[in-house]
Design a protein around this nucleic acid. Structure first.
Length: 557
RNA sequence: GCGCCUGUAGCUCAGGAGGAUAGAGCAGCGGUUUCCUAAACCGCGGGUCGCGGGUUCAAGUCCUGCCAGGCGCGCCA
């Protein structure tokens, strides 16, 4: 299925270019075609600047090319008007019958209307959040949760088989610090005066976990013969498990479900294998008692990195390479990692490693999202897990709700720094854009409900007088609905879910405007039928796009 | 010092592979309800697109130099 209007026009433009070539005796390849929404209504529904680029390519005058192209395109019934406009645009107006056909399609195909098969047969993995199991998720993670989940929905919409994965760093120094921190809390609970580890996790949540541990594993801990390190180790396992349970609960609240939780500890045996694989290819060497990855082979001038320390322990980088080897080994065609900006320096070496493993560096896409600055009014709040001073995601969800939080995270491009002002997020609640959009959906539902109560039966599609939908508000609405497949396609191609929030605002605005100026249910039964179908299509589109953002579309508000 | 990201209305941000007269929400001011939800609609004000050069028929968008903020430059994760 491919309901992209832009693709259709693109096809026509290609055909027209072929005609043009015959007349102008040109054999030059076509420049890429861009179709955009013009800024002003007078410039039609869509426009292209093809005459500009084509004239440059062919060395002919822009207006000659523009006029010739226009004359070919005028043949198409898709357009009610095709106009060449100096200095070099072609503006298209879409014919009403086409819009009417689209309405029928939306109502019959529902959310399938926006489905594509570009990714058919291809497996793509989105790995996101992957927060260390050393504390609850905080607001910063919220951005990754919303972004990754939405991206996964969008990619699956254009036909990819998508897997959501969470990588759990359950080994290494941090887990050791975590274990010692809980141990210290436990000792404190027992009334012992001990100094808290300096590099430990100071958050109060560990006190609760220590209490839990005392109750649930008291016997195991007091068992005779166990050494202190053994007990700390046991306690660590318990703590990781407990924190993961909390993280899962939070994610559940956020409406995210991962297909796989991948544990770093499970890579134990993989790491040496992967390293020897790389060694065989000359990407690994020994120096100062450590094993190094020759990053410089792939990134000239960049420092080489340690894979195995002098102490014999593998670095995080080593297990991350093994992890990615495992990902590609599973037959994934494309891997997308979503990382916070604090990992930016890590990107080049990870890509180099993927190449060293024999995969194209294009197979791994790493999306960096800028960090979230937490504010309460004017005050900045630091967000350190280690120091325990952070606002848990859970608390934000309680305050502003899942839908508003998601919308807030998703309405900005991930390149832009995000100011999350807790005061504002709370205060904003009644005026929040997300409610504006949801309200549009609820309004549609309420009208449909009303129609049902009045016993108005929906006509068969072929009998509906779509030609009655002639007002500018109705036309604009139909146009917006028609462009949803393109919006989704473009959001997927650019990996930018935030485009959909912009689209939704626009669609909701058009609906509210339509609503205030026209009555759906009236004495005119023909008109009523047509409008009921129109708003039904609006409802489908709103819900479809909201779903892709992981935001609910309420029936009532 | 080096690398990446950001700088657009009072605030928070869109602006899509360079295009036609720069957009939205919030905040401010003023209007709209015998009628399907006023969580709405309509109107008004508000901009040297950080600053300077450059490329182009055309620059908020590309290049470059500054300025400001964020993040990163470990045998940490």
């Amino acid at each position: 299925m491919d309901n992209s209007l832009k693709r259709l026009i693109e096809k026509y433009l290609h055909e027209s270019c072929e005609e043009l070539k015959k007349v102008e005796f040109s054999s030059k390849p076509f420049p890429p075609i861009f179709i955009n929404r013009p800024k002003k209504k007078e410039w039609g529904d869509l426009s292209t600047n093809l005459p500009f680029s084509l004239s440059q390519e062919m060395g002919k005058s822009t207006s000659r090319i523009g006029r010739l192209l226009t004359s070919y395109l005028k043949e198409k019934t898709l357009f009610s008007q095709v106009e060449f406009v100096p200095p070099g645009f072609i503006n298209f107006s879409i014919s009403s019958p086409f819009f009417n056909e689209v309405l029928k399609k939306i109502v019959t195909q529902k959310e399938e209307f926006t489905r594509f098969s570009y990714g058919k047969g291809k497996r793509i993995q989105v790995e996101f959040v992957s927060a260390n199991p050393t504390g609850p998720l905080h607001v910063g993670h919220g951005r990754a949760v919303a972004f990754g989940d939405s991206l996964a929905y969008i990619l699956s919409k254009i036909g990819y088989e998508v897997e959501r994965e969470y990588y759990v760093n359950d080994v290494g120094g941090q887990i050791e610090r975590l274990s010692r921190s809980v141990w210290a809390r436990l000792q404190q609970l027992e009334g012992e005066e001990i100094s808290f580890p300096e590099d430990g996790y100071q958050g109060e949540y560990l006190i609760d976990i220590a209490k839990e541990a005392r109750i649930k594993m008291g016997d195991a801990l007091s068992e005779a013969g166990k050494t202190k390190p053994q007990m700390i180790c046991l306690l660590g396992e318990f703590t990781v498990k407990e924190i993961l349970r909390q993280i899962k609960t939070d994610l559940d609240q956020f409406g995210v479900r991962f297909d796989r939780w991948f544990f770093e500890s499970s890579l134990d045996k993989e790491i040496p294998k992967v390293i020897s694989f790389m060694k065989d290819r000359g990407h690994v060497y020994e120096k100062d008692g450590a094993l190094w990855f020759k990053t410089s082979t792939f990134l000239p001038g960049v420092k080489d990195r340690v894979l195995r320390r002098r102490s014999g322990e593998y670095t995080y980088f080593a297990s991350d390479i093994a992890y990615h080897a495992h990902k590609f080994g599973r037959g994934l065609d494309q891997v997308i990692d979503i990382w916070g900006a604090d990992h930016i320096g890590y990107v080049p070496r990870m890509k180099a490693a993927v190449e060293a493993l024999g995969y194209s560096k294009e197979a791994l896409k790493i999306i960096i999202y800028q960090l979230v600055t937490l504010k309460r009014g004017e005050k900045r709040i630091s967000a350190s897990t280690r120091e325990g001073k952070f606002i848990p995601l859970r608390k934000v969800l309680e305050e502003v709700g899942k839908d508003a939080a998601r919308f807030f995270f998703l309405s900005r491009s991930c390149d832009s720094h995000l100011d999350f002002d807790l005061e504002l997020a709370k205060k904003q609640t009644p005026e929040n854009p997300v409610f504006y959009i949801q309200y549009a959906h609820a309004r549609v539902c309420s009208i449909l409900e009303k129609a049902k109560d009045k016993g108005i039966e929906l006509k068969k599609l072929d009998e509906v007088r779509f030609d009655l939908l002639a007002s500018s508000e109705e036309r604009e609405l139909m146009k917006e609905l028609t462009l949803l497949p393109d919006e989704i396609k473009e959001a997927a191609e650019s990996l930018e879910p935030h485009r959909l929030t912009t689209y939704l605002m626009g669609l909701a605005t058009l609906f509210h405007q339509f609503y205030t100026r026209h009555r759906v249910i009236s004495e005119d039964r023909e008109l009523t039928s047509a409008r009921l179908l129109l708003i039904k299509a609006v409802k489908i589109a709103l819900k479809d796009a909201l779903n892709l953002l992981g935001i609910t579309a309420p029936q009532k508000m």
